[in-house]
């Protein structure tokens, strides 16, 4: 188990170093000058040069890279070019939205997917199964931004139960903040729940064919009892993989939904950073997301080992 852990940790560290180099190099070849963007069309060349020096853009590439990585290690992400505040503060504010939103969406999708999959697996190839699968097919096919717009149209424009978007911040209180996250979380959860339900259903059906299920049935358990008590746990491995992937996706990939609901999340911070050439923000958020994704993968790997003891014994 320890060797397994050590090897996983080494992979994690190497991935981070490689990612930091790739991200930094990509950012430095992006065309466009942050100073020029900030100063606009009437900028005086002397003022431009002064700003470039102020932002430290006139120094060699290697110096800038080492300074950035050195800062990252001690948790200092540097100063945003355009916002003029520390990048860590910016990211922290956005995480305050993106993390709860991702969790909420994930929770919703799990809460919807597990009962739906159990329901469908119990009624394999019958009407219930077919309708759940049909609905989940629609859930995957419907673009989530369009679904989000429908939600806004119904709940904000017509019924006026929710604001059409925006985020008042946690300072405004728990209820207003959660209210602002409800519609976006539903819009994000729908396709994820559909995917999860389909994966879990087929995993359940696979395990239902196993010998131990037949034994359990022979002991007198009903099909449903065998499913819930024995098949479910064994079907969790592929589901865990999907949940890990989904969480990373929800954290970083919510940008379209953030746009529809004009939420200040991480996705929009990256998007704004790119258009404004606030490269230090972009590279810092991206490296953080890389870290989050590798960390989640790492944790999922560890979780496998707990669920399935075979994986612990060095055959990885």
């Amino acid at each position: 188990m320890l060797r397994y852990l050590a090897r996983r940790l080494l992979v994690l560290a190497l991935t981070m170093v490689a990612a930091s180099i790739v991200i930094f190099l990509l950012m430095s070849v992006v065309p466009g000058d942050p100073a020029q963007f900030m100063m606009g069309m009437n900028a005086d060349p002397a003022a431009l040069a002064a700003l470039r020096a102020e932002l430290g853009l006139d120094r060699p590439l290697l110096v800038r890279y080492l300074e950035w990585v050195g800062g990252l290690v001690i948790g200092d992400f540097g100063q945003s070019y355009t916002y003029r505040v520390s990048v860590s503060q910016l990211i922290l504010d956005r995480i305050g939205l993106s993390l709860p939103l991702a969790f909420l969406a994930l929770l919703l999708s799990v809460v919807i997917a597990i009962p739906a999959a159990l329901f469908a697996a119990q009624r394999h190839n019958k009407a219930g199964d077919i309708s759940v699968m049909g609905l989940s097919q629609i859930g995957i096919a419907v673009p989530n931004f369009w679904f989000a717009m429908l939600l806004v149209l119904l709940f904000s424009v017509t019924l006026r139960w929710f604001s059409a978007g925006g985020f008042p911040g946690w300072d405004a209180g728990f209820v207003p903040a959660m209210k602002a996250l409800t519609l976006p979380a539903i819009a994000l959860a729908l396709p994820q729940a559909s995917i999860l339900a389909r994966v879990l259903r087929s995993a359940l059906l696979d395990t239902l064919g196993e010998d131990y299920i037949r034994t359990a049935r022979a002991k007198g358990l009903s099909r449903g009892q065998a499913l819930r008590r024995h098949a479910f746990r064994n079907a969790l491995i592929p589901v865990l993989t999907i949940i890990g992937l989904q969480f990373s996706f929800l954290l970083a990939g919510a940008i379209i939904i953030e746009n529809v609901f004009f939420l200040p999340g991480l996705g929009r911070l990256v998007f704004q950073g790119i258009t404004q050439r606030d490269l230090i923000v972009v590279q810092s958020v991206v490296i953080l997301l890389v870290f989050a994704v590798t960390l989640v993968t790492f944790l999922v790997d560890i979780a496998y080992a707990f669920i399935d003891p075979r994986l612990r014994r060095g055959t990885v």
Binding site: V157, A164, G165, G166
Partner: peptide, 18 residues
């Protein structure tokens, strides 16, 4: 001052009275 980049979202926010 509220910032809404997306034109469709701007429309919805006006219509919803936000």
């Amino acid at each position: 001052f509220k910032f809404i980049a997306d034109p469709t979202a701007a429309f919805a926010a006006m219509m919803a009275g936000d």
